Amino acid sequence: MTMFHAIVWLDHHNAKVLQFNPDTVETATVKAHTHNTKQHGSGVRDEHEFFADVSAALAGITEVLVVGSSTAQADFKHYLDKHRPQVAKQVVAYQTVDHPTDNQLVALAREFFLKHDRMAGVPTPS
């Protein structure tokens, strides 16, 4: 089921995508690929494959809040801007957070999107 809002917590090894509406939360986990090669640039290739998988998990979601480590967010934003501009448009904000629980992530996202939607003039769902 595709929902309107999602929050993504990510670092360079994992991403957790939580899609939600007022009644339901759906969670998906994306793990980074690791290729054990000595080939130059394989780390970049691994990161691009990981970020591509995270981008694919965001298909159909209208508004996304990305949270996690500041370096992972910056790298993900750079990847989106360069390789996935349509997905970049879905991301409404980036916030640095530590390692919250799923419930804390959803609470953070609900609070964020309530304020974000009010500022954008979107009525609050009842």
Results as ranks from 00 to 15, higher is better:
Met1Ile: 12
Met1Lys: 14
Met3Thr: 02
His5Ser: 10
Ala6Pro: 05
Ile7Phe: 03
Val8Phe: 09
Leu10Asp: 10
His12Pro: 07
Asn14Gln: 15
Ala15Gln: 12
Ala15Phe: 09
Gln19Ala: 11
Phe20His: 04
Asn21Val: 11
Pro22Cys: 07
Asp23Lys: 03
Thr24Lys: 09
Thr24His: 06
Thr27Ser: 13
Thr29Lys: 14
Val30Thr: 10
Val30Gly: 11
Ala32Asn: 11
Gln39Val: 13
Gln39His: 06
His40Ser: 11
Gly41Leu: 11
Gly41His: 12
Ser42Asp: 01
Ser42Gly: 03
Gly43Val: 02
Val44Ser: 10
Arg45Val: 15
Glu47Gln: 09
His48Asp: 10
Glu49His: 11
Phe51Lys: 01
Ala52Asn: 15
Asp53Val: 00
Asp53Tyr: 04
Val54Ile: 08
Ala56Arg: 14
Ala57Trp: 09
Leu58Ala: 06
Thr62Pro: 00
Glu63Ala: 06
Val64Ser: 04
Val64Glu: 07
Val66Met: 09
Ser69Asp: 14
Ser70Pro: 01
Ala72Gly: 08
Asp75Thr: 01
His78Ile: 04
Tyr79Ala: 00
Leu80Val: 01
His83Gln: 04
Arg84Ser: 05
Lys89Arg: 12
Gln90His: 11
Val91Lys: 02
Val92Cys: 05
Ala93Pro: 06
Tyr94Met: 07
Gln95Trp: 07
Thr96Cys: 02
Val97Ile: 08
Val97Glu: 07
His99Cys: 00
Pro100Cys: 05
Pro100Ala: 09
Asp102Met: 01
Asp102Val: 06
Leu105Gln: 07
Leu108Met: 15
Phe112His: 13
Lys115Gly: 01
Ala120Val: 00
Ala120Thr: 00
Ala120Met: 10
Gly121Lys: 02
Gly121Ala: 07
Pro123Lys: 14
Ser126Pro: 13
